[in-house]
Design a protein around this nucleic acid. Structure first.
Length: 345
DNA sequence: AAAACTACCAACCGCGCGTGT
DNA sequence: GACACGCGCGGTTGGTAGTTT
């Protein structure tokens, strides 16, 4: 079976980059006749190209409504959100970004966003933390329960101490991530009742609290070479309060500190990843655009929708960020009520 | 200055789907 | 039902510009 290929091999048709003359021929022809039949178009237009090549050239480059230039933060954020829902459906994503082509978005994803997410320890496919790498419980427990045989002074700080993080909280975080992953699957979205997620509401006290900072100095986990920044969030579905977790930085002394971050390493606020989770709308789209950056040394930490219910794991201050350069650590900011409730201190 | 390396992106390729015969 | 066709999609490639060594 099978169909004849669009572009026969060695049939004299040109391949490779288009010349301006070819572009002009294609533009002129389409402006006069439209682009009804791509297979016959090149012959009629006097082009030594196959129809497929003409179509790609037109749709990806010559179309008059193509928007050129860098992707804005809003566009980038939209891409990330849509990708978390649609996956690699580039054409579907492109249809929601006027002026951008699927090819352009795909390229941008593969060359910028995907790499960035990977560096952050986020699986670019599932948009969830790579728990294979980032097993919070094992990391923190192994770090916080220091062995007396370890001579590191940092580690010795933790000798004979109670675990600093409640395993229940860590399990809760892992559960959230897993649910988030499950909920990205549209089939599961339709099957899992909202109440399934609300169970956590009881576990996270509804208390306005001042966010206090707790800094843990730990040995970095050598098995996490790519985990630089991790961003995700928790969304309380009942009232859109958000429990954000961002900036779990685990820098090894490999020279990759925050100061090494380039502009492209900064990401738009992803805290609205889950906004659609709480929507009753079957179409489940709810956008919050934001220009806020994460991990931007010159900018303050992004503010979640409801900052009074924020559980931030990360460093917020300039001083703290600078100290990353010389000190490996996990740095947490945890609302006081959670710390108290879990007897952290 | 040149080689090596990296990042980017336009273009290609193969496949699947819908439609017509 | 089988096949051909047109088209669109997603993955991949390769050329090139920029950067580093």
């Amino acid at each position: 079976m099978g169909r004849t290929p669009c572009c026969e091999k060695n049939n004299g048709l040109k391949k490779g980059p288009w010349t301006t003359e070819e572009d002009q021929k294609l533009i002129d022809y389409i402006q006069k006749h439209g682009y009804g039949n791509w297979r016959t178009l090149p012959k009629n237009a006097g082009l030594q190209r196959c129809g497929k090549s003409c179509r790609l050239r037109w749709t990806n480059y010559l179309r008059p409504d193509i928007k050129r230039g860098r992707f804005s933060f809003e566009e980038e954020e939209t891409i990330i959100q849509l990708h978390s829902i649609l996956g690699n459906k580039w054409s579907a994503i492109a249809s929601r970004l006027p002026g951008r082509t699927d090819n352009e978005i795909k390229n941008y994803w593969n060359t910028h966003i995907r790499k960035r997410l990977l560096r952050m320890g986020i699986d670019p496919v599932t948009h969830t933390p790579r728990l294979d790498l980032l097993d919070l419980s094992s990391i923190l427990c192994s770090s916080l329960y220091a062995s007396s045989s370890n001579s590191s002074s940092q580690i010795n700080n933790f000798q004979n101490q109670q675990p600093l993080l409640n395993p229940d909280l860590l399990n809760l975080a892992s559960s959230f991530f897993q649910h988030q992953q499950d909920y990205n699957n549209p089939q599961i979205q339709n099957q899992v009742p909202l109440s399934h997620f609300l169970q956590f509401q009881d576990q996270l006290p509804q208390v306005n609290s001042n966010v206090i900072t707790t800094t843990f100095t730990t040995p970095c986990v050598s098995s996490l070479p790519n985990v630089d920044t991790y961003t995700s969030n928790f969304t309380d579905l009942s009232n859109y309060q958000q429990y954000s977790v961002h900036d779990i930085d685990c820098h090894q002394n490999n020279g990759f500190g925050l100061s090494n971050l380039k502009e492209e390493d900064y990401i738009p606020q992803l805290s609205n990843y889950n906004n659609y989770y709480g929507s009753d709308n079957q179409n489940l789209m709810y956008y919050q655009t934001s220009n806020q950056l994460l991990s931007t040394p010159s900018s303050s930490s992004p503010t979640p929708l409801n900052s009074n219910s924020t559980c931030i794991i990360g460093s917020n201050t300039e001083d703290e960020r600078e100290s990353y350069e010389s000190c490996n650590r996990l740095n947490f900011e945890i609302p006081a009520h959670i710390l108290e409730a879990n007897d952290f201190m």
